[in-house]
Design a protein around this nucleic acid. Sequence first.
DNA 1: ATTTTGACGTA
DNA 2: CGTACGTCAAAATA
Length: 883
Amino acid sequence: MSDNEKPTLLVIDGHSLAFRAFYALPVDSFQNSEGQHTNAIHGFIAMFLNLLKNEKPTHVAVAFDISRYSFRTREYPDYKGTRGETPPEFIGQVPLLQDALKAMNVTTISIEDYEADDILATLSVKGTHEGYRVLVVSGDRDTIQLVNDNVTLLYPSRQGVSDLTRYDPAKVKDRYDIEPHQYPEIAALVGETSDNLPGIPKVGEKTAVKWLHKYGSLDEILAHADEITGKVGESFREHKENAIRNRKLNRLLTDVEMPCEITALEKKPIDQAAVREIFGKLEFRTLLDRVLKLEGVEGGAPAEPGVSAPSPQNLLDEELEAWIERHCAAHPEGLALSVEVANGMPTAIGIATEDEAVSLAWQPGRADYAPFESWLADDDRPKIMHGAKQQIKALIEAGLTIAGLTFDTFIAGWLLRPGGTDKTLADLVLRYLDEQLPKADPNQLVPDVEPLSTALEAWYTARLVAPLRARLDDGSARVLRELEMPIVSVLAAMELRGVAVDHDQLAALSNRLGSTASDLAARAFAEIGREINLGSPKQIQEVLFEQLQMPTTRATKTGYSTDAASLADLQASNPHPFLGLLLEHRDATKLRQIVETLDKSIDSGGRIHTSYVQTGTSTGRISSTDPNLQNIPVRTAEGRLIRAAFTVGEGYDSLLTADYSQIEMRIMAHLSGDPGLIEAFTAGEDLHRFVGARIFGVDPADVTPEMRTKVKAMSYGLAYGLSAFGLSRQLRIDSKEAKQLMADYFARFGAVRDYLRNVVEQAKVDGYTTTIFGRRRPFPDLKSPNRTLRQNAERAALNAPIQGSAADIIKVAMINIENDIRDAELSSRMLMQVHDELIFEVSSGEHDRLEEIVRARMGSAAELSVPLEVQVGYGSNWDAAAH
DNA sequence: ATTTTGACGTA
DNA sequence: CGTACGTCAAAATA
C-alpha cells in the first residue's frame, strides 16, 4: 500500500496547542460579549480546520492532560516544577474547546496518570502497526522521538499555531543532525528548562550531538564517561545522574491502555446544531463559516464573495485600459494598488478589486502601460494601498506621478489599534478577514509556499477596506481622511529629499570624542587600579558595590542601577573620582556613537535620508528611524556640535527652523479652559515667570531663577501624570515641599486638575481617549485589577490627548505648508520634523515668502483658546538656525 | 545567532 | 512613584 492510499491518523496534543495559541493571539481582541476570553480556542480551531483541509485525515483524536500531575511527578516531584500559575485568562478556555471539539464529533482522550504526549506516542505506534500514516501535532519537543518514515510531527513555530513545521526524519536530521529516536538522549544531556529538568552544565546541543556521534548512544557515552576530557568531562561525570534521570522521564510510553480502538476515531460528520450553538456562544462567525464549508454545507452562512483567490491576469494596452475603465466605474471607492519594491525601485505592479486582480510587468519607459500611468496620476481616481509611503517613493523614483491615494489599510489598522504591534498585511488579513496568509517557513531553505504575488497583495488590500471602514468611528475616519492620508506623500517627499550633513565635521568630532574617551578611561582605570569595560553595567556594579563597597542604588532586574541619576546620588553620598570620570566617559562615548551612526548613514550625495514611521507611536506622533533624526543632542555644547554638522545643502541659501513654543501647555490650557493658564498665554509674559508669580504670590519681576526652575518642572510634569514624589526626586527637594508646590499650583490653576482627573474618568467610561481632532487611543488596562498596570494606564491616558493633539496640529501644519509651497512655486522645501519643530531648506530670495507661509500655517493649524506661538530662526546649519 | 536589558539621546 | 520614542553594547538565552 502506498502512502497516498493509507488512511491518515491525526493526533493532537490539545493542551499544548491551546496554550501556544493563547500566547500567539492577543488576549484582548478575542473575547465574547460575556467577557469570556476565546483566543486559545480560536487559535486552536483555526489551526485544526487548516489541518482538516490540508491533510484530509481519515481518523482524528485530540489528547488532553487531566492535571499537571502524572506518574512522572511521582517519580520526580520537581518535574515541570518551574511552571508558573496558569494565566487566569487561559483558565476556562480548555473545557469550552473540548465542547467545541465534541460538537465537531472529534474524539478527545484523557487518561488518568498519563500525559497527553504518552497518548500521542501510544496512538502513533498503534496506528503504524495498523497501517495508518500518522500525523502528530504537539508543541512539546519530546515528541520528536516519535518521528519515523511513517510518523510526521507538526510543530508550531514561534509566530503562531497555524504555522506548523513538518518534522520528518530528514527534517530532524537537517535541524539536529541526529536520528529522531536519538532526540531524547540529546535532551537528556542538555536538559529541559521548561520541564525543570536540569541537564549537564556546560553541555549544549553542540556538545551533546558531538558525543552522540562519537559513541552512538547515551548508554555508550555513560560507559565511556572516563574518556571525556576537559571541564565538560568533569561536569559530565559529576552530573551524569541528571542525564540518566532525564532520559527516564522523557521516554514517552507507547503502551498506555486506550479507551477505544483507532477505528473508532474515524472522522465523522459534525453535529451541525451543536456546532452552531457552541460557535455562536463563542461568537466565532467566520470560523463557523469555515467549518460549515469544510463539511460541504451550502447556505449555512451568508456566502462570502470571492474568498477563493482570483488568478491575476496579465494585461496591457487596450485590455488594460478597458479593465481599469470598467472597474473604476464599478468601484467608486477606488482600486487597490500594490507595488513590489526592490532597491527602492518598482519591479511589479498589482491592481485589484475585491474579486479580480491584474498584474503588470511594468518597466520604465514602456508604452504598453500608459493606461496605468494615467490612472495613477489621476487625482479623481481613488487608490487604496497597504503601506503606501515606501511604494510611493519607488514610483516617484521611477518618474511616475501618483495622486488620489484615499485609503491605506496599514494606517487604518494602526488607527484602530495604535498600540498594537501587528500591522502587516498578514496580520490584518487574519484579524479582519479571518484568513491565514501563506507564509514561508524561515527555517526552510527551499520555501514550500510561493510568496504572495503583488496582484494578490492588492486583492487582499481591496478586501480589507470594508471591514476596516466599518470599524472606524467618525473621529478616526476624519483623522485618516484629513491628516494621515494627506501626510503620507509629504513624508515620502521629505524622506527622498534628505538633509545635508557634513562628513568632515562629524569625522573631526568623532576623533576628538574618541581621544577624550580613552583619556577618561585611562584615568578611571587608574582610580580603581584595574581595567574594566566601562560600557558594561555588570562590571561597573562590581567596581562600585564590591570593590569600593558603596551603598547599593535602585534595584534593577539583574542587580543595581548604574544610570546617571544613581551615579549622581552616589557622588553626593560617597564622593569618588571614579564616578565623575565614568559619567564623563559615558557622555563622550554616547556622543561618539551618535556621531558614528550618523556618519555611516550619509549617502553619496552627502545627505541623510531618515525613514519616518507614521504608525510608530500610540499617541499619533511620527517616529524616525535609520537613523533616528528626532533624538539628535541639543542640551550640551558638545552635543550641539552635532547639530552644527546638519548643514544647508548645495543650491540653497540657509536652513529655517520653526517650532511651536510650549505647545503641550497651550493644549492643556485650551482643553482645561483654565482662566489663569489662558491668561498666562495671552499676557505675553514669560510663561514660567507668570505662573511662578501666581504660585508664590510675588510680582513676576521678583520670581527667582530657583522658583522658575521649580515651576517649569512642575508644569511640564503635569502633562505626564507626575506625582509629588517624582517632583521631589527630580528637583531634589523634600517631598513635603513638593507636595506644597503642587497644592499651590492647583489652588491657582484648579481647572487644570479638574481636567486631568476628568480625562482619566472619561477614559475609564469610554475605554479610550480622544484628541482635539478625534484621534482615539484605547486603554483596556484602566480597568485592570493589577494596580501597577492600571496606574501606568492612567498616566498614559492623561498624556495621550495632550501629546496626541500636538501631533495632530503639526501634521495639519505640515500638510498645509507643503501645499502652499507648491502653489507658490517655491523651490524651498521641508526636510525634517522633530515633534514640535520643522526644518526647511531655503532657496535664495525665498526667505520672506517661506517664513510667511510657515508662520501662517503653523499658527493657524488649530483654533485654540490660546494663541499658537511659533518661533522661527535662520542659519547655515541646524544649530545656528536655532534661536 | 538571536532576543532582552540597561542606559541615554530627543520632544 | 513622569509620557512618547529609537539605538547601541552587553548580557542572557536558544
